[in-house]
Simulated scan of single mutants.
Amino acid sequence: MYRDNSLVPKEAIRLAALGLLAEGDRPYGDLAREVREFATRIVGPSLDLLGTSIELLRFEGLIEPVDGRGMEDNAVLRLTDSGRTALTEYLTSTMRPGVSDLNKLVLALKLRFIDLLSDEDREEQLAALEMMYAGEKARLTDLRDRADRGAGLLAAWLDLEIDQVDRRIAWCRDLISN
C-alpha cells in the first residue's frame, strides 16, 4: 500500500482475485481469466496490473488449492482465513482522489465486492467515497471560479465535471441512507 493506505496496482489485482474467491471456489484458469477480463475492461491491457501471479497468493497463504497443486493442474482454489483478512483490508483501504486508470479499477473492485463487507464497513466506505467526491468538487469549483470564462471550452468542461461529481455525491448519499 501507499503511505496514505491506498492500493498499489498489484494490490488491486489481488483484491480482484481474493474477492472472486470469496464468492466461491474457482479453478485456477477461470480465476486468472476473470481477473484479467475485469481489469482489462476497466483500464485496458496493462503489464503493471496483470503481472501479479495467483501463485504468489498461494505461496503467501491467502489462497489454497482444494485439490491439486495450482497452475500446472488447474486446481480449484479457495480463500483462506488470511486471504479473507487481506480482502477486508483491501476493501477498506483509502481511495486516492483524482481520475486515473488505477483509481477507476480500485473503485470498480470496491463497488463490485462491497457486499462482502460488514454493514458498518460498507457505510464507512460509501461515506469516504462521498468525501472524496466532495473534495474533487471543491477543487473543480475553485478552478472554475478562477478560470477565464472566455478561454475556450474550459468553463463548459468544468461545469460538466462538476455536474457528474454532484450526481456521484447524491448517489453515495442515497446508498448511505438506504
Rank of each mutant, 00 (worst) to 15 (best):
K137W: 02
K10V: 14
G61S: 09
M1S: 11
D174H: 12
L160D: 10
S53K: 06
D67T: 14
R167K: 13
E64F: 05
L158D: 10
D148L: 03
P97Y: 05
D81E: 15
D48S: 13
R173L: 06
A75R: 02
A108T: 02
P9Q: 07
G135H: 04
Y2D: 08
G24I: 12
V165E: 00
D121F: 03
S177I: 14
A147Y: 01
L47A: 12
E123H: 06
R139E: 08
E89Y: 00
V165C: 07
N178R: 15
N178G: 06
P27A: 14
E23G: 15
E11N: 15
D119T: 12
L102M: 09
D159P: 03
R3T: 12
L160H: 13
G24R: 14
R14D: 14
E11R: 15
T80Q: 10
I176S: 11
S6N: 01
A156G: 07
V165Q: 00
R167G: 07
P65E: 04
R84L: 04
I13D: 06
G24P: 07
V165R: 08
A17K: 08
L154D: 03
L154V: 04
P27F: 10
R78H: 06
S46L: 00
L153W: 00
D121T: 00
E123S: 13
G70V: 08
P9K: 10
R26D: 03
E89M: 01
T92Y: 05
L62M: 09
D30A: 15
E130T: 05
G24D: 09
T52H: 04
L79T: 11
I42W: 03
L158K: 14
Y2M: 08
M71H: 15
L91G: 02
E37Y: 09
L117T: 03
P65Y: 01
D174E: 15
G24Q: 13
L56W: 00
G61L: 02
G24M: 10
F113Y: 04
E161R: 15
E130I: 00
P97R: 11
R146T: 07
E124V: 03
E120F: 08
A138D: 11
R78S: 13
V35G: 08
A127H: 00
V99I: 09
M95T: 13
L18H: 01
S118C: 05
A127E: 10
I169Q: 14
G135Q: 00
L62Y: 14
R96K: 09
L154E: 00
T94D: 00
L7R: 13
L140M: 09
I169H: 15
Y90Q: 00
L57G: 01
D121P: 00
K104A: 12
I162G: 12
A155Q: 04
L57D: 04
I114Q: 08
N103M: 05
E64H: 03
S100Y: 03
L87H: 08
